[in-house]
Design a binder for these strands. Structure first.
Lengths: 202, 202
DNA sequence: CGCTTGACTATACGATCGTGTAGTAGTTTG
DNA sequence: CAAACTACTACACGATCGTATAGTCAAGCG
């Protein structure tokens, strides 16, 4: 059961269409008429259900955030906190994440709030790490941004690896690559020392 | 010397204003009239110099790409390939990167081409690593996307750590955090094994 | 039955969009 | 000096935007 039961009515279809087009074309780039057409309804019905474009957007924000938290809880229940915090990549989340980033870039408070909650959770997670980063807050913030960033550039990453990252095969490569990045030290201690010296000089 | 010499004329001011507003509001969200006002010229002059909004955008794409490559070369010359490939974060690049990502998300071929070049360079870099990732291509693609992602969510990361990541202090925390993420293994070998088993089951 | 209510469509409104055209001031060029 | 060119502004055009209004249709209910 992927969605709530009574979620196939016109209101839900409009919301889904809005999230799709907002993601693909940006908030300003997706018109209410286009969204209505995508949902198979008149543009007047969009206004009837949501009042304004801004209100429609906020409804999408709240829905996406709720679904993200809901799916996140399910994943922690299934796979444990370590798995969830390290990868936090699940195919179901993909459209939600891409939408939320688009909305965040255009100044959504709801989406930004969700991001900050993710940073909070990530900061807690750092306490379970063997070697602690010196700046937990910055570590968690950058990590969260990096994980989201992969999905911002979904099309570009897909093009780079030659297959859609939403496909089972592409997603597997994506997950493994992220795991490699997060678990294999990128520099030898010597390189790290050299880099540290360089930083001090500049 | 930060910029070419004759770069203060109206044409350059329009281009800079366009990059600023495209970044802040998205391509569709920034009108030619707004861009002209930001540059302190008439909207007709924008058309005179660039012909159309699409052509203006492509001019911005090319300029941003050129500057990125130029700055990248300077950084390699100054600090060496290891430093450049691991962090690839320089304050000067920030506005260029944020613009290019915006443009990439709205389907810019030039920006996508630059991303693919970054992936190519990153893939070469993986050959200098001690422990090789199994899938170099995916590794480089995900790494490039992650590094870009931090700048997509610039405002959100800044909010999370309590200071602007463009400030010297915030930028230093950002760089150190990225370095920690890339050099400190996030999981113990035991956790990694557990995660591997979990993945096989699902 | 008549009446209300909610889902839905059709159509019209100002505003703003990208674009096109005409024209001016200043410099260059033959 | 006149012609040509360049940088620039002013203004008008259709199209499309978000929004508003009026009306249709079916279901529920006294």
């Amino acid at each position: 059961m992927d969605r709530p039961a009574d979620d196939l009515n016109a209101r839900a279809r409009i919301r889904d269409a809005a999230m799709k087009l907002f993601t693909e074309r940006g908030i300003e780039g997706a018109s209410i008429r286009d969204i209505a057409a995508e949902a198979g309804v008149s543009s007047g019905l969009v206004r009837h259900h949501f009042g304004s474009k801004q209100a429609l957007r906020e409804a999408c924000d709240h829905y996406a955030k709720e679904r993200m938290l809901q799916i996140g809880e399910e994943l922690v229940f299934q796979g444990g906190a370590a798995h969830t915090n390290v990868t936090t990549m699940h195919p179901i989340m993909l459209p939600l994440q891409t939408y939320l980033i688009r909305s965040m870039m255009d100044g959504s408070e709801t989406a930004t709030a969700l991001f900050l909650e993710m940073v909070d959770a990530g900061e807690e997670f750092t306490k379970t790490l063997g070697t602690a980063p010196s700046d937990r807050r910055a570590y968690a913030a950058v990590l969260a941004a990096m994980k989201m960033g992969v999905f911002v550039l979904r099309d570009q990453v897909s093009k780079a690896i030659g297959e859609d990252i939403a496909s089972p095969s592409g997603y597997a490569r994506l997950t493994q690559a992220a795991l490699d990045i997060f678990t294999i030290p990128m520099l030898t201690p010597e390189q790290l020392e050299q880099l540290r010296k360089y930083s001090e000089e500049h």
